[in-house]
Design a protein around this nucleic acid. Structure first.
Lengths: 299, 299
DNA sequence: GGGCATCCATAAGCATTGATTATGGCTCGC
DNA sequence: GCGAGCCATAATCAATGCTTATGGATGCCC
């Protein structure tokens, strides 16, 4: 086992002070306390480290060597404290974020810009992935935060992760501008039972299918794409209809489509997932605050 | 005050083992012991250092930074132990010796050669000075050992130093070869009352004067020199008589002088003086053993 | 899907560590 | 020679720190 570092630092203090009594005063202790620590240290190393004389102590050769190491240890401890203080006060740091595409296009850039403005040396590393992969990255420790969405419930349930919902966004029905129903005030999904449907990721598809089932039909899924630009282009040229969340239409809006938001189309909830405890890491916490739209620390 | 280095090393062990339980096993402790230390460390630094999950722990960014420092601290402690082991086992080291001239010419070279043969990387630094200055160097911390002599009693008495006599050497009366008394079997000092006398250092002079006084006369001191070569040359050409210790005649013997050792001329004791505790410093102890003529460690 | 193994945290008990006060030896300076 | 510095040692007591005991949570396996 390694030498007792505490006693090593006490020894260093004695060497610096020039006497055991002076070191004790500097440490706010009594003289015997320091004396006993030194005796224990010398017993442990098996060699006299300092020669006691009236008027103080003087280092032996082994003592002088050990003092060099003690200085190094003290330096490292000091550096450790400084580094931690830097990280705590956000003078530096890093937060790794996985986000889904439409968020990466809208919410994330704003949050990152806000964080950079407040803390220029806190770096954000963004990975754009769909929610399931984001959770995988989180579990493997490759990212600190995952910005994900779910149509209902907790998208990270049962995975040992923490889910913090941020907001619910409406889901819109997307039709070509020249669609017969494009001008109607209210649209019933059942009216689109005969249309070809375009769906995105597995969860979006499940949501669409569930909505249609509730409306009494099974949609005919003709095209599949995660890309909200691709999907809107397909809709615009009349290849089908689709459902898209508000943020996807916020990030990009094809002029050839119309979007109708109705409560009956449901909502999509997005939020942050992280490993328990990660929210207390300063850089991570700061990014969470930015994403939640409250850049300044609460309180 | 600095961070608790002990807990830092426990944290390091946890990071290395991958889990608190594994670290506890490695340390021969129970899991709660390590858990509590980590909790205390995190409380002290104010930042989570690792995220607990089933299957073990994972470092946060602050934890990763702190681990680097912990490694440095452990390295320094390890190096400290190695260096001390080197010094203890005489794989390296240094002993600073102050010795008076005739010893420096005879006893010391043999001792240094012996030490070097046994421990090639233990360095001896020799300073040739007369005993009083040697004690001064000892007190000021400039040497570890002083090889000194005295005509009676402890030459370092009352100075807070340790006196270890090594041997008593006879004192010889030194006459020119052509002196009328040169052939006599026994010589009484009183017979030399009319001769010019040559004396050396203050203590040697005091010894000579005391001897002459005991013989009933006050010597006429004509020449003063510490240098036993100079003194013998003066005697050889008939400029006076003198008293010299055996070692001075052993180091150099002028053909033009005769030396008579008699109990009545007294003895000169030489030995080692050191600060209390210094005899336990390995390099110093080894040199003491060599000087005492017992190169191998006792026992 | 329920039981089991493993992870971690917390609480309470107790032994050791580590501080204290008290005392004594030693050297130096007045 | 006496007082004021050093330092070491012994004895006492409190706090630290390790223990056992327990509970919550996750993941694996049949």
């Amino acid at each position: 086992m390694l030498m007792d570092a505490r006693r090593l630092l006490i020894f260093r203090e004695v060497a610096r002070a020039g006497s055991i009594s002076a070191a004790a005063r500097a440490l706010g202790w009594t003289q015997p306390a320091v004396s006993q620590h030194l005796a224990a240290l010398e017993r442990a190393v098996g060699v006299p480290l300092l020669l006691r004389g009236p008027g103080g102590v003087e280092l032996t050769e082994p003592g002088a060597r050990l003092l060099d190491r003690a200085d190094q240890v003290a330096l490292q401890l000091h550096l450790a404290e400084e580094e931690l203080a830097d990280l705590t006060s956000l003078r530096r740091g890093r937060a790794r974020l996985a986000a889904y595409p439409s968020a990466a296009a809208t919410l994330v850039p704003r949050a990152v810009a806000g964080l950079r403005a407040r803390h220029p040396d806190v770096d954000v590393e963004l990975t754009e992935v769909e929610p399931p992969e984001a959770l995988g990255l989180l579990e493997s420790g490759d990212v600190d935060l995952a910005l994900v969405f779910g149509y209902d419930g907790d998208p990270a349930a049962g995975r040992g992760l923490v889910w913090r919902p941020l907001a619910a966004e409406p889901v819109a029905l997307v039709l070509p501008v020249d669609h017969p129903l494009a001008g109607r005030r209210r649209i019933a999904l059942a009216q689109l039972a005969g249309e070809p449907w375009i769906v995105g990721c597995a969860r979006c598809r499940a949501h669409a299918v569930a909505l249609c089932a509730a409306a009494g039909f099974a949609p005919s899924v003709r095209h599949v794409s995660d890309d909200y630009v691709v999907v809107q282009n397909l809709v615009a040229v009349g290849l089908g209809v689709t459902l898209l969340p508000h943020s996807a239409l916020d990030a990009y809006r094809h002029p050839g489509v119309v979007a109708r938001e109705q409560a009956s189309f449901g909502t999509r909830t997005y939020g942050i997932v992280h490993r328990p405890g990660a929210e207390r890491v300063p850089a991570t916490a700061a990014l969470v605050r930015e994403l939640a739209g409250q850049g300044a620390p609460p309180g």
